[in-house]
Design a protein around this nucleic acid. Structure first.
Length: 815
RNA sequence: GCCCGGGUGGCGAAAUCGGCAGACGCAAAGGACUUAAAAUCCUUUUUCGCGCAAGCGGAGUGUGGGUUCAAGUCCCACCCCGGGCACCA
C-alpha cells in the first residue's frame, strides 16, 4: 500500500469540521473517577492570538488530554475576560459600541481556539462582559458592603491621564500606567471605592506556605514582597508646647535614643498646621514631584518647620522636618530620623547639618569608631536605662515600656494597600449603589440586580465617565425613601471579573446564585493553573483574596483557589518579546495556515522546556512539520502490514523496536507525571521514529500493530489532529483522547544487558556489556583484564577499585 | 541595594539521585533517488593535535578555588545576562 503524503490543511479541516460546535468531552460530576481541573489564564478578546497564547493552551491541552486518557474526570473550560480599555479604545476607533465589538471578537476567538484543536467544554463558556456575570459581581459587592470589606473613602489615588481613570497600586508600573508605559501616573484626591484586602494581608502571607511546592518560588517571593509585612513599633513624639502627638513607625525602636529629627511626609495631615504659606507652596511642589514617582534616584529634599518634638523615651528635643522621601502611604507617614543607623536618614541629615548620634555598638568594636554598620543589631549605649541591652532585648523591653506609658506600641505594618476598585469608565460592572440626598449611600436591592450598562451611550474618550451623560441610567428613585437619587457611575476594575471566573465555570448556567457550592466543593481547588508570570501580583493576589472573602461569606470552603500554578515562558522572536510596536508578532492564524495547529503546538512544546522562554523560528517549526510528516508516512505505508493475531516469532528488529517503544512510553508517562519537560518527551518519540525507520523492513505484523497503535496514542496529547487521522487510518473508531493511555512494560523496556563504563582515575577507557546484576568481583576482574584498560594500568599500582553495579568501574592507580 | 531565575557546540537544547557531557531538533556539508528542482532517504558535524585510514591522544559545561575514586550537577568566592522589588523607615 502506498504511503500518503502529509497535508496538514486537509487533515485538520476535516477533523475541525467534525468537532466544531460540539463539546469534545464533558466532565461527569459524581463519577468515581478522580477529578482534575486544568485551566489556562483567560485571554481578552482583542481578536489576535499569537504564538505565545498558542503555547499557553498547548501546554494546558496536552495535560487535559493526558489526564483524560489516564481516566480522570477532567474540567477544562474556556472563557473570555472582557478587559475594559481595549474594548473601549477599539470601540472609539471603529465607531462601534464596545459591547458589540467585544461579543464579535469573542466569537472570532472562539473559532480560532476551535481551530487550534483544544478540548474545551464550550458549554461552560463564561464571558465576563455579560450582564449575568455583572449580576454576581454586584451580588458579591453587596455582601462585601455589608461586612465592611467594600467601603468608600476620599483618598489620594493613582490616575492615568491617558486612560482617564483611577489605577490600583498593582497597576502602576515604574510610576506609569501598566497599559501606557510612558504616561506618568498623577495623584488625585477622589472619593473612591475600595476592597479591604489589607484585612486579609496576614492570611495571604501565612497561606503562602500552603502553596509552596505547587507554585513557582519566584511568584511566591513576589507576593511576599508585595504584601511586605514588617514588625516594628509605633511611637508618639509630642509636638513641643502642645498636646499634639506625631506618631512614627520604626522597625528599629532600639535606635530611638539616636533620633535627631522627626520627619513627616508632605501629605501628612499635620503639615497644614505646621507650616506657613511659603511652606505650603513647597509642600505642594513636593507632593507633585512625589506623585510622578520618577524611576531612579530622587534627591532627598526637605525643610525645617520651625517646630520641635519631644522624644518620649529620652525627653530629648528634636526638630520636626518635612521630607520628600517620607511616604504617606506607608506606616504612619512620619518617621524618626536616626542618621547613625539608617542610610537614608544619614543621607538626609548630613545634607542639612542634623547631628549624627550613634547609640548601637556592634558586638565587636567601640561606639563611634566608625565600625557601626547602618542596619546592624548590636549593644545599646547612651540609651538611658536601656543601655547595655542587645538590640533584640531592647526592642522587646521598649515596646513594653511604650505600651505601659501610653505613648506607643508594637505594630505590624504591611506594604500592600487596600484595593481601589473604582473606575471612571464605561466598561466594567456598575457598582450597585445609589446616592440619596436623604439616606446617603444605599445599596441596590438584590432583586433589582443586575444593574446593567446602558447601550445608548456615546463613547467619547474625553475622560469623564460616559455614564454621567446618560440620564436614564443616572437618575433613579431611592430604594429607601423613594425620592430622587443618583446612581453610582463608577464601574468596577475588571480584575474583579477575573478574580472568580474559574468558580463560575463550574456552574456557568446558574441563574439563582454565582454557583452551586456543592459543585465548587467537588472541583476546587484548581489542580493546575497555567499562565504567564506577569499576573503574579495582580490577578493572582486578587483571586487569592477573593477566595478568602467568599469563604468568609460562606459560599466556598477552600482557603486557596489554586493548588498548582505553572508559569510558562514567553515566546521570543528575534531576541525580543513579541509586540506590535516592534512588529515581530507571529500570529497564530499564520502559523496554522502555513504549518497547521499540530505543528505549531508540537514545536512550541519541543523547542524548550515549558517554563523557559522560547525562541520562535520558522525553521524550527519546519522541523516539527517534517517530523509529523515522517510519522504519518510511516503509519500510512505500514498500516496494511499490521496484524495483531498473526503468530510470527520476533526478529531482532522487533525486540529493538519494542524495547524502544516501551522506553518511550515510560519516558513520556514520567514526564507527564512529574516534570512536564515535554521537549524531552517529544525527543524520545522522535528517537522511536528514527528506530522505526532503521528497522522498518524487518518488523513483523504483530509488532507493527502494537507500535502503530501506541505511537498514535503517544502523539494524541501533542498533535491531536494527525493522531485522530492515523487512528482512523488504522480502522479504529472513537476519539484518541478517549482511549486509555498506553501502559509501559518494565520488562520490555529493559536493555538486554548493562553497559558498564570502565574508567582509570575517572577517565573512560573502555566499555563492556554484561548481564544485569553481575557481581562486583566479576566486574573488577573484567576491568583489570580489559584490552583497552591494560595500557593505562601497566606499571601502575592499583590503589582502589570503585564498582557501581550495572554502571561503572573506576580503577584508581598511582605511580 | 535586596529577592528570584539562568550561563553547556554555529543555534534551540539534553544529561531526572554525584557516575560515558552534547540526546533530540535546527543550520551546514556530502551522498542516494531525479532529465532537473522540490520533497524524501542516508552519512558527517564540540574543539585541538597526530594519522592515508579505521583510529589514538589532549582540552572542554561563565571565572577562580574546594570536597570526592568521580563534579555541568555539591560547597565557597566572584563575573555576566534576564526578571521582580526598591527612599517601605
Amino acid at each position: 500500500m502506498p504511503e500518503k503524503q502529509y497535508n496538514h490543511n486537509e487533515i485538520e479541516m476535516k477533523w475541525h469540521q467534525r468537532w466544531e460546535n460540539q463539546p469534545l468531552y464533558k466532565p461527569e460530576p459524581g463519577t468515581a473517577k478522580p477529578k482534575y481541573y486544568v485551566l489556562e489564564m483567560l485571554p481578552y478578546p482583542s481578536g489576535t492570538l499569537h504564538v505565545g497564547h498558542l503555547r499557553n493552551y498547548a501546554i494546558g491541552d496536552a495535560l487535559a488530554r493526558y489526564k483524560w486518557m489516564r481516566g480522570y474526570n477532567v474540567l477544562h473550560p474556556m472563557g473570555w475576560d472582557a478587559f475594559g480599555l481595549p474594548a473601549e479604545n477599539a470601540a472609539i476607533k471603529n465607531n462601534r459600541h464596545p459591547r458589540e465589538w467585544t461579543l464579535e471578537n469573542i466569537a472570532a476567538m472562539k473559532r480560532q481556539h476551535n481551530r487550534m484543536g483544544f478540548s474545551y467544554d464550550w458549554d461552560l463558556e463564561v464571558s465576563t462582559c455579560e450582564p449575568e456575570y455583572y449580576r454576581w459581581n454586584q451580588w458579591f459587592f453587596l455582601k462585601m458592603l455589608e461586612r465592611g470589606i467594600a467601603y468608600r473613602k476620599k483618598a489620594l489615588v493613582n490616575w492615568c491621564p491617558e486612560c482617564a481613570t483611577v489605577l490600583a497600586n498593582e497597576q502602576v508600573v515604574d510610576g506609569c500606567c501598566w497599559r501606557h508605559e510612558s504616561t506618568p501616573v498623577i495623584q488625585r484626591e477622589l472619593e473612591q471605592w475600595f476592597f479591604r484586602i489589607t484585612q486579609y494581608a496576614e492570611e495571604l502571607l501565612a497561606d503562602i506556605k500552603k502553596l509552596e511546592g505547587g507554585w513557582p518560588d519566584r511568584v511566591l517571593a513576589m507576593q511576599r514582597n508585595w504584601i511586605g509585612r514588617s514588625e516594628g513599633t509605633e511611637v508618639d513624639f509630642t509636638l513641643e508646647g502642645t498636646d499634639t502627638r506625631i506618631r512614627v513607625f520604626t522597625t528599629r525602636v532600639d535606635t530611638i535614643y539616636g533620633a535627631t529629627a522627626v520627619i513627616v511626609a508632605p501629605g501628612h495631615p499635620l503639615v497644614k498646621g505646621l507650616v506657613d504659606e511659603a511652606g505650603q507652596k513647597q509642600v505642594k511642589e513636593m507632593l507633585d514631584a512625589q506623585a510622578r514617582k520618577d524611576p531612579g534616584d530622587v534627591l532627598k529634599e526637605g525643610f525645617f518647620t520651625g517646630h520641635y518634638a519631644v522624644n518620649p523615651y529620652s525627653g530629648g528635643r528634636v526638630p520636626v522636618w518635612i521630607g520628600n522621601f517620607v511616604l504617606m502611604g506607608y506606616g504612619t507617614g512620619a518617621i524618626m530620623a536616626v542618621p547613625a543607623h539608617d542610610e537614608r536618614d544619614f543621607e538626609f541629615c548630613t545634607q542639612y547639618g542634623i547631628p549624627v548620634v550613634p547609640v548601637v555598638r556592634p558586638v565587636e568594636g567601640v561606639l563611634g569608631d566608625g565600625s557601626e554598620a547602618f542596619g546592624d543589631d548590636g549593644i545599646l549605649e547612651n540609651s538611658g536605662s536601656f543601655s547595655g541591652l542587645t538590640s533584640e532585648e531592647a526592642r522587646a523591653q521598649m515596646n513594653e515600656h511604650a505600651k505601659a506609658y501610653g505613648f506607643g506600641e508594637k505594630a505590624i505594618t504591611f506594604r500592600i494597600k487596600d484595593w481601589g476598585v473604582s473606575r471612571q469608565r464605561y466598561w466594567g460592572t456598575p457598582i450597585p449603589v445609589i446616592h440619596c440626598p436623604n439616606d446617603g449611600v444605599v445599596p441596590v436591592p438584590e432583586d433589582q440586580l443586575p444593574v446593567r450598562l446602558p447601550l445608548n451611550v456615546s463613547i467619547t474618550g474625553t475622560g469623564q465617565s460616559p455614564l454621567e451623560n446618560v440620564p436614564e441610567f443616572l437618575n433613579v428613585k431611592c430604594p429607601v425613601c423613594g425620592g430622587d437619587a443618583r446612581r453610582e457611575t463608577d464601574t468596577m476594575d475588571t480584575f474583579v471579573d477575573s478574580s472568580w471566573y474559574f468558580y463560575r465555570y463550574c456552574d456557568a448556567q446558574n441563574s439563582s446564585a454565582p454557583f452551586d457550592p456543592a459543585k465548587i466543593a467537588y472541583w476546587f481547588p484548581i489542580d493546575q493553573y497555567i499562565g504567564g508570570v506577569e499576573h503574579a501580583i495582580l490577578h493572582l493576589i486578587y483571586s487569592r483574596f477573593w477566595t478568602k472573602m467568599m469563604r468568609d461569606i460562606g459560599v466556598v470552603h477552600n482557603d486557596e483557589p489554586v493548588k498548582r500554578l505553572f508559569t510558562q515562558g514567553m515566546v521570543i522572536k528575534d531576541g525580543a518579546k513579541m509586540s506590535k510596536s516592534k512588529g515581530n508578532v507571529i500570529s497564530a492564524d499564520d502559523v496554522i495556515d502555513k504549518f497547521g495547529a499540530d505543528t505549531g503546538r508540537l514545536f512550541e512544546l519541543f523547542a524548550a522546556p515549558p517554563e523557559r522562554d522560547l525562541d520562535w523560528t520558522d525553521a524550527g517549526a519546519e522541523g516539527s512539520y517534517r517530523f509529523i510528516g515522517r510519522v504519518y508516512r510511516f503509519v500510512t505505508r505500514n498500516v496494511h502490514r499490521a496484524d495483531r493475531t498473526s503468530e510470527i516469532h520476533r526478529s531482532d528488529a522487533d525486540k529493538r523496536v519494542l524495547r524502544k517503544l516501551h522506553q518511550t512510553l515510560k519516558k513520556v508517562t514520567e514526564d507527564f507525571e512529574t516534570r512536564w519537560h515535554f521537549n524531552t518527551s517529544i525527543a524520545s518519540v522522535m528517537e522511536l521514529v528514527n528506530e522505526l525507520y532503521a528497522s522498518e523492513s524487518e518488523l513483523t505484523p504483530p509488532v507493527i500493530a502494537e507500535v502503530l497503535e501506541k505511537l498514535t496514542l503517544l502523539l494524541g496529547p501533542f498533535a491531536p489532529y494527525v493522531a485522530e487521522e492515523m487512528w482512523e487510518e488504522m480502522g479504529r473508531t472513537g476519539p484518541v483522547f478517549k482511549q486509555n493511555w498506553p501502559e509501559f512494560d518494565e520488562e520490555l523496556a529493559r536493555e538486554e544487558g548493562a553497559e558498564v563504563v570502565l574508567q582509570v582515575n575517572g577517565k573512560v577507557r573502555s566499555k563492556v556489556t554484561v548481564a544485569f546484576g553481575t557481581p562486583k568481583e566479576e566486574l573488577e576482574k573484567a576491568a583489570l583484564s580489559d584490552d583497552k584498560m591494560l595500557p593505562f594500568l601497566a606499571g601502575k599500582q592499583v590503589v582502589k577499585i570503585i564498582v557501581v553495579p550495572d554502571r561503572l568501574v573506576n580503577v584508581v592507580v598511582k605511580g
